[in-house]
Amino acid sequence: MNKLNKLKPVFLLKSAEKIIDKENTKDILWSILRGLIIIGISYIILYPLLTKISSSLMAERDLFDHTVRWIPRSLNLENYRLVFRAMDYPRAIYNTLRTAVLVTVIQLISCSLIGYGFARFDFRGNKFLFALVIFTLVVPPQMIMIPLYLNFRFFDLFGILPEGGLNLLGTYWPFIFLSLTGMGMRNGLFIYIFRQFFKGMPVELEEAAYVDGAGPITTFIKIMVPGALPAFLVVFLFSFVWQWNDNFYIHMFLPYQHNLPTALSTVANDVSTLLGERNIQMTGGRIALTNNTGMLFYIAPLLLLYSFTQRYFIESVQRTGIVG
C-alpha cells in the first residue's frame, strides 16, 4: 500500500479527495432532503390521529378558541366518559373482537391450505382455478351483495333444505361459510400471498417428510406452517384489521348486533340522548368532538395490536415477497 502511495503522483490523490468531498456533501444534502420529505409525509399520515387525540380531550369552547390549536386549555375527560357510556364500549368491543377473531382464525386455516394446494400440487386445472381466485378479487363484493344476502336470508342449500329455508342472518354462519371457503373479504389476496410464499420455500424438507411416510396434512402442519410464519403474520394482520374495520358484511349479516361499527355510527345520537337527560343541548361542535372521540375508541385496539406486532410485521413484509 505504502509503495503504491509513493508511486502515485500527489495531484491525483488530491483530486480524489475532492471527489470524495463532493460525494459527501451530496449525501448530506440528500439525507436532509429525505428527512424533510419523510417528516412531512409522516405529519400528513399522523395528522388525523393527532387531531382525534387532541380534540377528544377538548371542551367545546376550545374548538372555537383560536389560541387553541393542539393542546386544550384544560384537560377534559368528559368526552371519554360520555362516549364510553353511549357506545356501550365493553359490549361493542367484545362483539367485534369475537367476529374478528373467528373470521381471522378460519381464514388463516382455509387460505393457507388453499394456497398450499395451488403452490405445490401440479393437478390439472391448477392455473385455471387460480385465475378464478384472482377473478373473485377483482369483482367488488357489492356486486353480488343482494343475491348473497337473499341466499343467507333463505338459506336452503340451493334446494336441498325444506321450503323457505333457514334464515342465517343474525348468526355467525354466513361469516363461517364464507371464510371456510376462501370467499371472505379479500380472501383472494390471502390465497395469493400464501401461494407466493409456499412457492418460494425449498422443496427438500417436504420431500424428506414424504419419504418418511408423513401424509400431506402432517407435512403441511409440521413443515410448511413453521416455515411460513411471516406469511401467516401478514395475513393475520390484514384479515383482522379489515374485519375490524368492516361495516359492509357486518351490516348485512349481523344487522341487530351491538358492535363497534353500529355503535360508532350512532354515537352522536346516543350522546345527545345522554345529554338530554341532563338538559344539555347537542351542538355541532359537540357532535364533532363526540365523533372524533368515538373514532379514537374504535381504532385504539388496532393501534395497540399494531404497536405490538409492527416489528414482526415489517420484517415479515420484507420476507413475504407479496410479489409476482
Binding site: 391450505l113 394446494g117 395451488f118 400440487f121 382455478l129 371457503t181 400431506p216
Partner: peptide, 10 residues
Amino acid sequence: MIGYFFVLPF
C-alpha cells in the same frame, strides 16, 4: 391429485 383436496374448499 391431493391438490384437489386442498383447493376443494375454494
